[in-house]
Design a protein around this nucleic acid. Structure first.
Length: 429
RNA sequence: GUCGUUGUAGCUAAGUGGCUAAAGCGUCCGGCUGUUAACCGGAAGAUCGCAGGUUCGAGUCCUGCCAACGACGCCA
């Protein structure tokens, strides 16, 4: 029986399989165990007088981390942390642990030790709750996509080249030539809309940037979606609605986890506050005397300043054409601007990058030639064909899953919400 | 990549040029039938990150290297 299901079994005899995460030996005749099985936690009380002298003995030689099968009566007891406890009548050690388990890592250990012993650290209710939460959020996200008629597809992670210049790619050996790990599946999703109309994918993306910040991983879960016949306004609404939906679901279903992280999450109002790139740099100049030349990226510190200024999620949109890759659609009303939008959130910075896609081949070729180094359209023959043969207005976005979890739970560091984080210095475990 | 901080027992950590390198947790031995990071008594456990240098004497000062962390930079 799972520990998440036992609360309805008060007064009954149950058998649970679990791990010992804490243990107190009180003399040679009484032992308290904290049992954890990944779904819940309960205190087990083992008395020699109940279990029998010979049957009790093995528990005295057990170490934390051991797996154990316990049978007993679940009884209310005000002395137990949960208000009830398992009064064990018999048990069986499934697999022992040993004395070195205690010497691995404690909650006071340094970041370095905690990351090296991450496989041990995750064996507890708090880390467990994050991983469970991430699974729930993905579930809500897929629910939302399916309810909107999107289909999940699986673009390749091994690619020949990538559109976005500047960002560094991980190069890998691919038989007798080189290949790269993908940075984004966007271009493939753009191809997939011709097959399924509206699509999404949830896959890892890889960035070989030597960024050492609290919100960067070299491998992260990238949620991407692309919709045919979707313009910029439809796109922004789609993303806003998605985030509001996830927040509502979390509030409705995951209060226990929110409480564990001391997070009081409020429903989020749509539409979000929007500000044009041009107005944002003007605001930064006027209010904070921060000068950003038109066409330059708004870097980390000013970006935080912007988020703090409004104190709420922010849609930063209409970036200058010169800042964005060739596939961003130029705004017909102002050729210097693109129909693009970044979603900035408190605590995690840029959460979503999005935009309507360019469909004009001439404009794309022109911008590809201007890139540094210039992009060879031949390498993107298939992508150009999407425009050549019956293109449609379409839009899409990419969202960093770990960053979304950071914001939802108010967790400080991205590595704390990742099963086995990959950073510049961390390749194991 | 730049700058900074740190590196002493399995973990956390004191030690500001001079006696045998403190201590807590954990481990081992002993005690305890209601513990909540239990408690009480005892024991073992340290190539002071690595290499060189200064000095009568270096964990402590200097140089180089390595590693981790943090900030910045880079980065949808």
């Amino acid at each position: 029986m799972k520990l998440s299901e036992i609360s309805s079994e008060l007064g009954k005899e149950i058998t649970v399989e679990s791990w010992i995460i804490r243990m107190r030996k009180q003399g040679k005749k009484l032992v308290f165990l904290s049992l954890f099985d990944g779904t819940g936690e309960v205190q087990a009380t083992l008395k020699q007088s109940t279990i029998g002298i010979d049957e009790f003995k093995p528990i005295l030689d057990v170490f934390r981390g051991a797996s154990i099968r316990t049978t007993g009566i679940l009884k209310e007891d005000s002395r137990a942390p949960q208000g009830y406890e398992l009064q064990v009548t018999s048990f069986e050690i499934i697999h022992p642990s040993d004395e070195t388990y205690e010497q691995q890592v404690t909650h006071e250990s340094s970041t370095d030790i905690k990351l090296s012993k991450r496989h041990i650290v995750i064996r507890g209710p708090k880390s467990s709750s994050i991983l469970r939460f991430q699974s729930h959020v993905l579930h809500y996200m897929r629910d939302y996509f399916y309810s909107k008629g999107l289909e999940e597809v699986f673009p390749p992670l091994i690619v020949e080249a990538q559109a976005e210049g500047g960002s560094e790619l991980f190069e890998i050996k691919y038989f007798d030539r080189n290949a790269y790990l993908t940075q984004s599946s966007q271009l493939y999703l753009e191809a997939a809309i011709f097959s399924l109309r509206d699509v999404f994918c949830i896959l890892p993306s890889f960035r070989a940037e030597k960024s050492k910040t609290r919100r960067h991983l070299t491998e992260y879960r990238h949620v991407e979606a692309e919709g045919a016949f979707m313009d910029f306004e439809d796109l922004v609404k789609f993303i806003e609605e998605m985030i509001a939906y996830i927040v509502d679901k979390v509030i409705a279903n995951d209060q226990d986890i929110l409480k564990m992280w001391d997070r009081e999450l409020q429903p989020i109002k749509t539409p979000f506050r929007r500000i044009k790139y041009g107005d944002a740099i003007k605001l930064l100049k006027d209010e904070y005397d921060i000068t950003i030349p038109h066409g330059e990226d708004i870097s980390d510190a000013p970006e935080r300043q912007l988020i703090d200024h409004f104190g709420e999620p922010l849609v930063l949109h209409h970036f200058p054409t010169t800042m964005k890759p060739f596939y961003h659609k130029i705004d017909p009303e102002d050729k210097n601007l693109t129909r693009s939008a970044d979603f900035l959130f408190p605590g995690c910075g840029e959460l979503v990058g999005s935009g309507e896609r360019e469909t004009d081949i001439g404009s794309m070729l022109e911008r590809m030639a201007k890139m540094d180094p210039p992009v060879n359209p031949e390498e993107y023959y298939w992508y150009m064909d999407l425009r050549k043969y019956g293109s449609v207005p379409h839009s899409g976005f990419g969202l960093g899953l770990e960053r979304l979890i950071m914001w939802l739970l108010g967790v400080e560091h991205i590595r704390d919400i990742t099963l086995f984080p990959r950073t510049v210095t961390r390749l194991a475990p």
